[in-house]
């Protein structure tokens, strides 16, 4: 009871903080809001990425959106596991294939079957290079094959890497936009490589073309 209440409180506080700092604004695709159940796949450059997506979704989509995150990071301490599990109800996966006891794709499919939407970062890790996007891992493809009816929505998060670059602990206030693209699905006869290339292309096409901000 108290834990639930605290979690609710924390989620509102985190959302208000994220909004006050970044004035986060969603740009929806011209076809409108994403479907009720979606897998949002986004570029990953900061720990705050999923918070921002989550914060700009309208309440009825936000309620069911669960981030998929690395168990080893979120179960590190009592506080992070409270935030990961209780506040955001994350699907915690084990990223190291050698050490893991459960299959991440299976876990994600189960969450979808329970009616959840997922927020995933197919780059697998935070991008700290100068490249706009790291090559995708194959998990998104396998998930799409397993649950081919669920819409995959590309989401480009702009500017959050400047709010809190790696190694900094004080965020600076900058305006962030979250650009939602057209939902896509895996084709029946599409190869893994083709699908991954198409998904990466769909995500990259949402990135702003102007790059002089990083001059």
């Amino acid at each position: 009871m108290i834990r639930d209440f605290l979690a609710k409180l924390a989620s509102v506080a985190i959302m208000m903080f994220a909004r006050a700092l970044t004035a986060a604004r969603a740009l929806w695709h011209e076809t409108g809001l994403p479907p009720r159940q979606s897998v949002y796949f986004a570029n990953h450059s900061s720990h705050g990425d999923f918070i921002l997506i989550w914060a700009v979704l309208p309440p009825w989509l936000r309620q069911r959106a669960r981030p998929v995150a690395g168990a080893e990071y979120w179960l590190k301490s009592k506080l992070t596991s409270f935030i990961g599990r209780d506040v955001f109800n994350a699907v915690l996966i084990e990223r190291d294939p050698a050490a893991r006891t459960s299959d991440p794709v299976e876990q994600m499919a189960t969450a979808l079957d329970e009616g959840a939407s997922l927020i995933v970062f197919p780059e697998g890790t935070r991008n700290q290079t100068d490249a706009k996007l790291l090559p995708f891992k194959s998990g998104l493809y396998h998930l799409a094959r397993k649950r081919p009816d669920v819409a995959l929505v590309p989401v480009w998060i702009n500017n959050l890497n400047r709010v809190m670059p790696k190694g900094e602990f004080v965020p600076i206030p900058l305006i962030c936009t979250i650009n939602f693209g057209e939902p896509l699905k895996v084709e029946a006869d599409e190869s893994k490589e083709d699908f991954i290339a198409r998904a990466q292309g769909a995500l990259l096409s949402l990135a702003p073309t102007q790059t002089d901000n990083e001059a």
């Binding site: 004035a23 400047r162 670059p165 900094e168 206030p173 900058l174 305006i175 002089d212 901000n213 001059a215």
Partner: peptide
């Protein structure tokens, strides 16, 4: 001032090395 500064800094050239200078401007 806060909201205007946020709009302004969003549009300018910054690098990671400016992080503390910008944080000092805001805070």
């Amino acid at each position: 001032s806060f909201a205007a500064l946020r709009e302004f800094i969003t549009l300018i050239n910054t690098r990671r090395a400016d992080h503390w200078a910008i944080a000092a401007a805001f805070f």
